[in-house]
Design a protein around this nucleic acid. Sequence first.
DNA 1: TTGAAAGCGGTACCAA
DNA 2: TTGGTACCGCTTTCAA
Lengths: 330, 330
Amino acid sequence: MRTTIRDVAREAGVSIATVSRVMRGSASVTEPTRERVLAVAQELEFVPSQLGRQLAERRHAANGIVFPDLSGPYYAEVVLGYEAVAAELGRSVLILSTHGRQDADAKVLEMAERCDGLVILGRTVGDTTVERLAKRGVGLVLVARPAIATADSVNVENRDSAVALAEHLVARGARDFVFVGDPDGSSEFAERLEGVEEGFRRAGSRRRSLALAARPTEEAGAAVADSVGGVDDLPDAFVCANDELALGLMARLGERGIDVPGDVLVTGWDDVMAARYAGLTTVRQPMRELGGTAARLLDELINGSRSEPRHEVLGTELVVRGSTLGKEHA
Amino acid sequence: MRTTIRDVAREAGVSIATVSRVMRGSASVTEPTRERVLAVAQELEFVPSQLGRQLAERRHAANGIVFPDLSGPYYAEVVLGYEAVAAELGRSVLILSTHGRQDADAKVLEMAERCDGLVILGRTVGDTTVERLAKRGVGLVLVARPAIATADSVNVENRDSAVALAEHLVARGARDFVFVGDPDGSSEFAERLEGVEEGFRRAGSRRRSLALAARPTEEAGAAVADSVGGVDDLPDAFVCANDELALGLMARLGERGIDVPGDVLVTGWDDVMAARYAGLTTVRQPMRELGGTAARLLDELINGSRSEPRHEVLGTELVVRGSTLGKEHA
DNA sequence: TTGAAAGCGGTACCAA
DNA sequence: TTGGTACCGCTTTCAA
């Protein structure tokens, strides 16, 4: 059996109330009593049960984060940024990847029972679940998901950088483009597409067509590369919804002897580590900061230091590399 | 106030024992009673408190994973592999990054109070802490850390692939090498260094010198690149303890006009995503599987389906790319 | 300053 | 099949 507060109390000849006071450093306890209890606790290797404590205090001192498939580098970074700040704030961190499963909502509801608050990334769960959680009094921060009135949110600026990206492409001679990614699968992707379209429109161009990719992965990107007929069949630019699509696409184009940026320009989104080494033009997102900000907002929410919801929007940055520049600049 | 089991009992006109039975689907309950209770529970939106349940059952149905600084792609992958399997097994997942902090041991001890078992990666905590946890009855799986008798472990094969790597380098004309990474900071790194040394020794060569890098990061790798005098000051090969060191090193060498593999060969370890795009020769580790295996072992441990500790060793694979091949092969 | 005792929200044993 | 009740391990009044 584990050592409990009663064992310590008995051994030290005091009540459990006193042991509790000593362990929490709270209230007034005589120095001698204090020392005696501490000594016994040490000797018995007493570690207060979090469970007992949590039940009595009716709080978990933990919060969770929910994300889709964690395979890519993007979500990993966000989670890390989140963990770093949460740990700093003295909170335990639970993670849950929905893997696109059907029972995601149930899983999240279950996890919520172990947390004081939750960060929810993207479209991992339905709106009804979110509302239900909110109603239940769970602290909620939505990330990379359209903001709602009852919860905090953190998002990145998508439109402006999308326009900037389009302008860059137009400046590099592009007159049409194909968007690679499914705008219906993510509000972020939709915003990016809109922004790029607007940028091209301003320059008097029009979108050529829309390539849907089921999942934003390297494989899907490669599949798009496979689907083009040949050099004559290319748009001026492939604008990919994220870096992984772009990387997979670009690699496969290379294998097929199609030159980037000679035959076609390629861009991504996120600026993951591999993008640097692949020379991919992309839009940098502050991924760590996204997670860190969410952690801080959640903490405020839980500690009740704030009541009205806040909606943060973090800036992004266009990063131009070889995939949209002539060889001479790369 | 939240709805409790007593609210439901009162409303349904039964005892809390019956409600408990219904909620757990256990034991025998008349169909009418069952339905009535369920209806009330639904109406009151009753969700059993995990806390109450856990305290009564004296188990958490959760387990944790501890890793160092999670910045790199390596640990992220391991954690993801872990989460996927743990979730599948119906267990909640707590994460803790030690960030090289001094209070890491205390944090881990604290987290252990919320879990039935723990996976510990690398040298995040001291041996005394590990022993203490083991003694306390916490399920323990050590990953990328020397195995001990009282806990399970999962490691990757380092020596053999290191020898293979050395042989490859020798075949490419290398006669000496500089190891980039701190063998004292990680048992893994130490094994890799030993293996590479042995490989070179077999080929009649000898290690030229040892470059210590404080932390296995891109920045540290770049710093090593800065420290070499010029083309005449180079070894035949830089063998880096992980991919990030190698990538940082290689990039900076490029900036300095030193050609890889023309002037010097460079290798990494892990095969992270960026390594593919950088054309880096490396040793592939099954990172996801490492985490997944750990999760499975831990589950066995906790469910008591096994008593004697197990020690798994996963295989690795040499991946040859442009950084050790002539341009013509790259 | 200290102790007794009433919760916190469940589970499970023992009777009925 | 059900209900009563004693825990699980801690926190926190309320009195002494």
